[in-house]
Amino acid sequence: MATPTIETPRSGRMTPGYSRTTTSRGNFEMIAWLFMRLSGAILVVLIFVHLYVNLVAGDGISGIDFGFVAGKWANPTWQIWDLAMLWLAMLHGTNGIRVIINDYAEKNSTRMWLKGVLYTATVVIVVLGTLVIFTFDPCPVINGVPHVADYCPAA
């Protein structure tokens, strides 16, 4: 007679009745946790360089104007830099606020409303920011009047 095998606890095989989760959310929370650490590490580099170039180097904040932005975005590296910063920071921040909402909003309806507002704001800001980076025009013509700058073709 064969000896019955007894699985070690938590060996991965569980009778469905003992499963604690009834929904199939998968491992979303683990992916979110991992994303916070990965994006955080990248954002430290992206944002420290951003702050150095914009606030420390040169004239710092006194030197920032439309021409400064035009000068940066003439270089595709800064476009990609700012795009990566926008997406990673918005997703990192949105997930952080999502966790905070889940922690402190006790009513189901309150949580749903707050997260609805959060996700709406996130989509609007990410789409708007992305469009601005890629449709930026350093020499715009507004109401028939061309912008005057030394890097723009003379009208």
């Binding site: 104007d65 932005v69 035009a70 800001i125 601005v132």
Partner: peptide, 16 residues
């Protein structure tokens, strides 16, 4: 701040 910062930067598409 990030939300506000994207909005203020977006003004480059309105006018210099």
């Amino acid at each position: 701040f990030l939300l506000v910062h994207v909005l203020d930067t977006s003004l480059v598409r309105v006018s210099p």
